[in-house]
């Protein structure tokens, strides 16, 4: 089955983009893989225990939010999966996209900076270049 990867590494703007990501998955009749990355800049100082609890809580919150949004956009049956990882955003996105065999990558805009990449367009271009996948800025 077709899969699209929605990538997020935080930010209050994600509520609208999750909605758009589900709509895009609907257009492609694809399952949505939600990759949430706890990036090293913001979560690198946590110890192993705390890091694990933060990952679990974020997983719980995102699953709840996906369920809610699926109902709101009229796609309660859409297949979704949440993956929470900690580390470098680009590396994990590329690794997950290649490992999961996704067909398209989605990111929101604007996004938090990743090193020198300051705009969603720069991140999208980098992702597209590294994965050879079409990348959509929502």
């Amino acid at each position: 089955m077709t899969e699209v990867l929605y990538l997020s590494w935080g930010g209050s703007g994600r509520t609208k983009t999750i909605r758009r990501a589900l709509e895009r998955a609907g257009e492609l009749d694809a399952a949505l893989v939600y990759l949430a990355v706890l990036d090293s800049d913001h979560f690198g100082d946590l110890n192993t225990t705390m890091s694990s609890v933060v990952e679990q809580e974020l997983h719980w919150l995102l699953e709840a939010q996906l369920d809610l949004t699926k109902d709101q956009v009229g796609q309660p049956e859409r297949q979704t999966r949440v993956i929470v990882r900690k580390g470098n955003v680009l590396d994990l996105a590329v690794e997950t996209a290649k490992g999961a065999g996704v067909d398209e990558i989605l990111i929101g805009s604007p996004v938090p900076t990743i090193g020198s990449l300051e705009t969603a367009a720069q991140v999208a271009a980098e992702l597209s270049s590294q994965t050879d996948l079409p990348t959509m800025i929502l």
Binding site: P110, A121, A124, T135, M136, L138
Partner: peptide, 14 residues
Amino acid sequence: ANVAQSSESTAQLI
């Protein structure tokens, strides 16, 4: 991280 909200602009595919 991301304080600003997404704009309502049309999605762009790269």
